[in-house]
Design a protein around this nucleic acid. Structure first.
Lengths: 341, 341
DNA sequence: GCGCGAAATGTTACCGCTAACACTGCACCG
DNA sequence: CGGTGCAGTGTTAGCGGTAACATTTCGCGC
């Protein structure tokens, strides 16, 4: 029930008048300050309700210098991972009473990153979460002269920034070891775009697992993006090679494309070739065959990033923060099996 | 290069002092007002650069009463559709020089919707885009007493709100007709959650296509969500029925689950059963078999919603706006074929 | 009944910006 | 050569809050 006083939304002074107190007392009530008599507080609350009063955020920000707003920079919110992180971030922000504004990157170059940060700073965000797992973006962010606290999420534990990330290397190592355990002599790798830190780290993990076990390290197949299409195209190179009995893919979409390419060429999964993905997107369980993959909890990742950011706003620190790595788990399904004898 | 004057970020007065003009002249330069001599403008610009001055958004908002901020309410940004729309919205907002803040819904009930709107109003957004295609959400939004312009996107052309949507009925009708054209006697339907308008409209379109062609209208299979898992579970009911030769699914994920269930039961797709999806998610082409589906351009949807909203902010109108429906197209791939003779 | 300190409330001065109006100086006019 | 008009600039008064300080009210001991 909003009663408009004189054609304009009610302000604190209106509330004060109705409640018969000073403006300052209204402010005290609104901010839960002590030294307000309960009876007075009640009168003020009543007046607020009666008038449908709503504090003016801009005025408050002007004097307190706090916007309670955080920015999220994201390259492609369309991907399952980034979208989930955004969701987790927003959830956590709500709990901590922050607003979230998003800035999508037009492209992945330095300039776009710079512009996005500028855009957010124009809006006076108190901190920024970057969902920007590409090396170029990370580099740009790290070199950004800015007094705004910044946390990068899901972009590799080795970034020169405060980061919250899944331990990609551990996940990749686990997946690769699992395939070796099944009896495969070696494991091939269908890599993600080399500009993404996650892709790089997964490759490192894969390579290490092979090295540790003394297996041959074949040349990885490198894709330009994370899509099923790319998986399919690289898969067509792979099908020719009868040597390949196990492939660790940098994500689930690539794995899907690969499986399709293998099947199109008459190679059976997992009987002739085992395939492992990464991410555990909701569909992965229903690929044909159900995909063995490395699960990461994007939601949790987003939440943790936000908590880290808020802590850093309080503390005022920035780069070089301790890194929080979440340990991913291997989910074994039907796309992997012992190699044919 | 930010030079801090006396420990505080520079303000307009600092710029004025450095440029040797009044504060008002600085304001004029910043807002592209006429009647400033070019030489003066240059001096001011130089001072701005020198000081690293950045206008204070809160102060400006306080006096202009404009936040240049739009709110987006979204239930589950994790789904491909909503995530893409959000992306499109942000792109368009950037072009129109608006900020976008998001409010994810905790649950899909009236209260959550109400809270999200309140949250956005607290932040003084100038308009709201709701990506909330559920009937309950639409109902809640339509009844929300609020002076903030609101546009709902992707939530069915029949909503009592300004909407921008894909013509679900037309898409469903097209898919169903196509299957009938192939020679199927009838087409079964794997429906989406009945609380979503999109699901309802797709069912209506399917039903109409059958009716128009005089085909039998079988009872649709109804799912509780849009996931592949649900598609799989409903699929297990379907596999028993040898009568089923063609199924139109309310989205691609359901179709994936269904295909898996069919194949698990030894029924071949498309030889024994044809399957059609809806959305054309990027993976759809690489399902086994590649999925015939109805493509909708989520990105474009988001963009159009934003443009509609901005127009409505300018005009000041609200509900009952003309509806903009985008026509979806059928993409024929390998999951559909003539029925076995 | 009075003085005293703490609790409750009011007053005043900004926060950084823009709108409205006031003031310059100069070209142009009769 | 004094008015007139207008481009260019400065001055003043808020926008709606909060912080800091000033003031009043109240409970309580003597």
């Amino acid at each position: 029930m909003q009663i408009v006083v004189g054609d304009r939304a009610p302000v604190m002074a209106d509330v004060a008048r109705v409640a018969g107190v000073s403006q300052q007392t209204v402010s005290r009530v609104l901010n839960d300050r002590p030294n307000v008599r309960p009876a007075t507080r009640d009168r003020v609350m009543e007046a607020i309700r009666e008038l449908g009063y709503r504090p003016n955020a801009a005025a408050r920000t002007l004097v307190t210098r706090r916007t309670r707003t955080l920015g999220v920079i994201s390259f492609n919110t369309t991907l399952y991972g980034p979208a989930s992180m955004l969701y987790g971030i927003e959830q956590a922000a709500k709990q901590h009473d922050y607003f979230v504004t998003v800035a999508a990157l037009a492209a992945m170059d330095r300039r776009s990153v710079f512009e996005a940060v500028e855009r957010l700073r124009d809006q006076a965000v108190e901190g920024i979460v970057a969902i920007a797992p590409q090396t170029t973006a990370v580099g740009a962010l790290a070199n950004m002269p800015s007094d705004v606290p910044l946390v990068a999420v899901g972009c590799g534990v080795h970034a020169p920034l405060s980061t919250v990330a899944v331990d990609n290397e551990a996940g990749a190592e686990r997946a690769t070891s699992y395939l070796l355990d099944l009896g495969h002599r070696t494991v091939h790798h269908l890599a993600g775009p080399r500009t993404w830190l996650d892709a790089q780290e997964r490759e490192v993990g894969w390579r290490r697992a092979l090295t540790v076990r003394g297996a041959r390290v074949p040349e990885p197949f490198k894709g330009g993006d994370w899509s099923a299409r790319t998986g399919y195209e690289l898969g067509r190179q792979i099908v020719g090679d009868a040597d390949v009995t196990a492939v660790f893919c940098a994500n689930d979409h690539l794995a899907l494309g690969l499986i399709r390419a293998l099947q199109a060429a008459g190679r059976r999964v997992p009987e002739q070739v085992s395939v492992v993905g990464f991410d555990d997107i909701p569909d992965a369980e229903f690929f044909g065959p159900a995909l063995t993959t490395v699960r990461q909890d994007f939601d949790e990742l987003g939440r943790r990033a936000l908590v880290a950011l808020i802590r850093s706003i309080g503390g005022g620190r920035r780069a070089g923060e301790p890194v929080a790595a979440i340990d991913p788990s291997l989910v074994v399904r039907a796309s992997t099996a012992r190699p044919a004898p």
